[in-house]
Design a protein around this nucleic acid. Structure first.
Lengths: 93, 93
DNA sequence: CTAATTTGGTTTATAATATAAACCGTTGTA
DNA sequence: TACAACGGTTTATATTATAAACCAAATTAG
C-alpha cells in the first residue's frame, strides 16, 4: 500500500485542488465560498500548495480591490492524478 | 462539499478499514504487516476505530500467544461506504 | 536453570497539522 | 472623520498522527 501524498490528504487542500482541477482559475473569494472555509485557514493551505509548487498564486488588482488568483500547475495536476490512483486502492474503486 | 469523516480520513485508519472491508477478519500481526505500520501507531488507531464502533476488537489466545482479532462492524461498513461516496466528489470520480 | 531475546502489544511523549482568532492595510460609506 | 466591510496574513491553540519507551509472557541460548 502506497503512501497518500500528505499535501493532498487534507480536507481543505483536497477541496481546493478539486476545484482548481475543474476550473483552471479561481480567486481567493471564490475558493472561500465554495469550500466554506475561514480566510485564515484558506490562506495557510494555499501557501502550502503554492510552496509545494502544486498551484500558482497571483496577486493582482480588480479595479482598486486586491485579487488573488490561483491556478493548478502541471506538477499539481500530476500529484492530484497520482493521489487519485493511490487512494482508489484504499477505497477498492 | 460535504465533510470527510475525520475518523476515516487518516492514512492508517483508512488502510485498516480497507483491509477489513475485504477480509472480514484480521489479526493485529496481519494488519501490522499489511500496513507496514509500527505497533504503537496501529494500536492507537485500532482503539479509535473501536471506540467509534467502526470495528470490533477481540483479544483471545492462539495456543499460548495472545491474538487480537479485528472485524468491521455494520456501522463501520456504512461509514466506509459513506466516506467513499463523499471523497468521490472531491476526486471527480 | 537463568539470562537474554523475541513476540504482541499498550502507554506516553513529541512532532506535525489543521483550524480559528486576532490582526492589518485599504476602500467604500454614513 | 470615523467606522464598518473587504481581502487577506500572521500567530496562537487544539487535535492528530506517529514513534519511542515500556511491559508481560513466551521462547531461545548458554
Amino acid at each position: 500500500m502506497n503512501e497518500l501524498d500528505p499535501l493532498l490528504h487534507s480536507q481543505l487542500r483536497l477541496a481546493v485542488m478539486s476545484i482548481l482541477m475543474s476550473v483552471e482559475e479561481a480567486d481567493f473569494v471564490y475558493l472561500r465560498q465554495q469550500t466554506e472555509s475561514t480566510a485564515g485557514n484558506l490562506s495557510v493551505q494555499l501557501d502550502k500548495l503554492s510552496n509545494a509548487g502544486y498551484i500558482s498564486v497571483e496577486k493582482g488588482f480588480q479595479g482598486k480591490k486586491t485579487r488573488t488568483v490561483c491556478r493548478v500547475t502541471e506538477r499539481g495536476r500530476e500529484a492530484f492524478r497520482n493521489y487519485v490512483e493511490t487512494i482508489r486502492k484504499y477505497l477498492n474503486l
